[in-house]
């Protein structure tokens, strides 16, 4: 599980030498990474290192020009986004991206948009148990919530699709330090309920403190990988952040 070379016996998600362009701009160059079932992996890196693009490639919003994306043993490289979501991937986007003019309940419902109405009562239950605050606020417009509450809605919305792998893009961005703490507790809680998490973060120490393993991206390439404990000790991590 925590092999130092990052090779897992049977990974849930596996990127195999993925190269991605954004219009004319090359963002990722031969990325290979794995996330095992139930693992919490973080993806670190400075600005414009390609972290968000990696997540978008996994979700299918961006198609790689080369390489393969494998999920639960299947090659999903050519799959459209809805099919991947139905297969068990979900994302909590950067800045949360809630539908501000819709109620909390409607936001959550949209998380399960791919399933028929009436099949998600249990999911509501699960989200409301995890975030009791959302139950209180269910008829309030999402745009009027506080930053912490919005983060809860964003996570709840992603959980509504019953993901096996949760992608998190910069969950602590724009939150106060106290909320960041709380946020990481929630992520850990979600993770402990059996969902694998791939988290993109700039706050390396914080992320590694709850993660199993980590990868470090720099200008589109993975420059460092290993267990969280190793990375925390590593001098190379600091160097990777400061640039080569």
């Amino acid at each position: 599980m925590n092999a130092a070379d990052g090779q897992l016996a049977k990974p849930l998600l596996s990127l195999d030498k993925v190269t991605t362009y954004y219009a004319q701009m090359r963002i990722l160059e031969g990325i290979s990474l794995q996330v095992g079932a139930g693992e919490l992996v973080c993806l670190l890196g400075g600005n414009a290192s390609g972290k968000s693009t990696t997540l978008k490639t996994i979700l299918g919003l961006v198609r790689p020009r080369a390489g393969r994306v494998l999920f639960a043993g299947e090659d999903v490289t050519a799959w459209p986004v809805p099919q991947r979501i139905a297969n068990g991937v979900a994302i909590v986007p950067e800045n949360r991206r809630l539908f501000g003019t819709m109620t909390v309940r409607e936001n959550l419902e949209l998380g399960a948009v791919l399933r028929d109405a009436g099949t998600y009562d249990a999911d509501f239950e699960r989200v409301y148990t995890l975030f009791p605050r959302l139950h209180e606020r269910r008829d309030q417009l999402a745009g009027t919530l506080s930053g912490g509450e919005q983060q809860m809605v964003a996570m709840g919305r992603a959980l509504m699709s019953r993901p096996r792998l949760l992608l998190m893009d910069e969950p602590s961005m724009g939150l106060s330090p106290a909320l960041v703490q709380q946020n990481f507790r929630i992520i850990k809680e979600v993770h402990e309920s059996g969902v694998a998490v791939l988290m993109v973060e700039q706050n390396a120490t914080m992320a590694l403190s709850i993660a199993d393993r980590g990868y470090v991206l720099s200008t589109g390439e993975i420059v460092l990988s290993g267990s969280a404990a190793e990375l925390l000790r590593s001098e190379d991590l600091k160097r990777a952040y400061l640039g080569r």
Partner: peptide
């Protein structure tokens, strides 16, 4: 209707939820 409002509110976020 919900999907329409979601797309109107934030197209990219709607796409991330699998809305066509």
């Amino acid at each position: 209707g919900r999907q329409m409002r979601a797309v109107a509110s934030d197209r990219e976020a709607a796409e991330m939820l699998g809305i066509n």
